[in-house]
Design a protein around this nucleic acid. Structure first.
Lengths: 195, 195
DNA sequence: TGACGATCTTAACTTGGGTTAAGAATATAG
DNA sequence: CTATATTCTTAACCCAAGTTAAGATCGTCA
């Protein structure tokens, strides 16, 4: 399968984008590869591209003014959309860094082209709404994890729900994602050996 | 001003709904009043209505299986939309309770009628997208509060950004919203007298 | 006004994460 | 295969929030 065929298949699954609607977008997709540590989008940059990850893992993180350390907000991996959603839809500067944690390959489309597609096709409009709902779900899940769960529960749920992330990301990044320091994660892991 | 004129004005401000587009919706809005403690939508219920608050304050809360106590997730007040967003857009059972904290008045519209409006008018489609973006922002802000701020910082930001809520809601509900117990909020308040 | 219920604060103790720094384990490259 | 860097764990101490229960304050209504 070619890369655009993979994309077509994924978008069909996600939003019912059929071959005809997909063809409308064909001229717009561009491919880019990222090395480990390269940025998809940086702090204070306006995010102009919506990316589809063919391969690799990205992380979005925030830099705390006071503690000066990085706090991981989202991980994005293979067959997912990568985007700084708020910055993308409002075309305003981003509060986060989004960087590749591995060698990655992405197909991406420019915001202007996507808006053209929205105007041309109901299929694509539907896609836009579903991306919005996906973004909402990601954000809401994250809020719920922190509001209702302990760090230990978040750790267990990450292993259960996102083994792909757990198995491919160093523990100090996991700790940051869980909202705790590395030593605390070690303690949690030790605590659980008995269970 | 009549109540529908208030609504028309608010929707115009929010999403550029003009008089003509608003008229399309006119037959669909219904008014309802809620007493203190009455539910807008309950746990396991599918949320079928999108409400616009003419007056009053609502809270959305989660009941923790283990601790068995209520955790406040959102407050909604005058001139805002009240809805269990995820349940509403997916028409699936809600994980939360949404109840009126005061005597409240709401104009609401049924999900089916709203979908009709989406099909009929680009203005309303735009409204739908903006509601999605608002929901995303609420959820993302909530996630950020918990990921990046201490309880003390959340408390100060609530006072600064939502004095209307702070001034109209008992402290034990505020504590729950901030993700802490009432005694902890008391300690924070005491700590800050000196500052 | 006085009494009751609701709300808020305080105290004493427990618990778990933060912090810092050291050392162990694991990868990676030469 | 060793040297080096990276990642992970551990220890010791600190501090803030949780928990529970008691008491103070505030509101409301008979």
């Amino acid at each position: 399968m070619t890369e655009t065929q993979i994309l077509n298949y994924a978008l069909n699954q996600f939003a019912g984008i059929d071959a005809q609607a997909f063809d409308l977008s064909l001229p717009y997709w561009e491919k880019k590869t990222y090395g480990k540590g390269q940025f998809y989008n940086e702090y204070k940059n306006v995010c102009k591209y919506l990316g589809f990850i063919l391969d690799g893992v990205f992380r979005t993180y925030y830099i705390d003014d006071e503690s000066a350390d990085e706090k991981n907000v989202f991980f994005f991996s293979k067959n997912q959309v990568v985007v700084a959603y708020k910055s993308f839809v409002t075309q305003t500067p981003c509060s986060y860094y989004t960087e590749s944690m591995t060698e990655s390959t992405v197909l991406y489309i420019h915001v202007n082209h996507l808006n053209e597609l929205y105007a041309k096709s109901h299929h694509w409009e539907r896609f836009g709404r579903l991306v919005a709902e996906t973004a909402f779900n990601l954000a809401m899940n994250r809020a719920e994890e922190f509001m209702f769960r302990t760090p230990e529960q978040r750790y267990l749920e990450l292993i259960r729900n996102h083994p792909d992330i757990f198995n491919n990301v160093p523990l100090y990044h996991i700790a940051s994602y869980l909202g705790i320091q590395a030593p605390s994660l070690s303690r949690i892991r030790k605590r659980m050996v008995g269970k």
